[in-house]
């Protein structure tokens, strides 16, 4: 009896995780695509040094995001972890986190008036709760050096 109640709770959490998680994912992707189009004028440059010889200022910009996994994704991943294999359920999660982190970094650069970000790097952390238990969260940080217009001093 107790076991059936446990199984019922498990099935309910699974269904809730799938429905709410899928909806949240669809909405997030739509927001990401819209903001990516709006911020496309800020260019990401995959080199360590600024590809310009014009006078410019540089400043560190970064964007970070923490995304939680839904119960459905965690369950599928737990199944795959037994026998091994590609965890498709986590791929959309990590991709969203990476694109969202880039967007936030670009928003940071845009606020400073930057037009390019070079030397872009990523850092990913799997957040863990107490007693080293997995809390089902992933953090992605994107950071780089933004090129900013030179401030014209009075008298120059």
């Amino acid at each position: 009896m107790g076991l059936l109640i446990q199984l019922g709770i498990f099935a309910a959490l699974l269904a809730l995780g799938f429905l709410a998680g899928s909806r949240a994912e669809r909405k997030h992707y739509a927001s990401i695509r819209e903001r990516e189009a709006a911020l496309r004028h800020i260019l990401l440059v995959p080199v360590r040094r600024a590809p310009t010889r014009s006078p410019c200022r540089a400043q560190l910009v970064c964007g970070s995001v923490v995304i939680g996994m839904d119960y459905f994704k965690m369950t599928v991943a737990a199944f795959v972890n037994i026998l091994g294999g590609r965890i498709n359920a986590y791929e959309t999660l990590v991709e969203r986190a990476r694109r969202e982190a880039i967007l936030r970094m670009k928003e940071n650069a845009a606020a400073l008036g930057g037009s390019h970000i070079f030397n872009v790097k990523f850092s990913t952390t799997n957040l863990r709760g107490q007693n080293n238990q997995q809390s089902g969260c992933v953090e992605v940080v994107a950071y780089g050096t933004a090129l900013l217009p030179v401030r014209l001093e009075a008298g120059n």
Partner: peptide
């Protein structure tokens, strides 16, 4: 490119 096109429910039933 970075995301599999497989439906999550199919994944769940196969892996489960």
């Amino acid at each position: 490119i970075n995301v599999s096109g497989q439906h999550p429910l199919r994944d769940f039933f196969v892996q489960g």
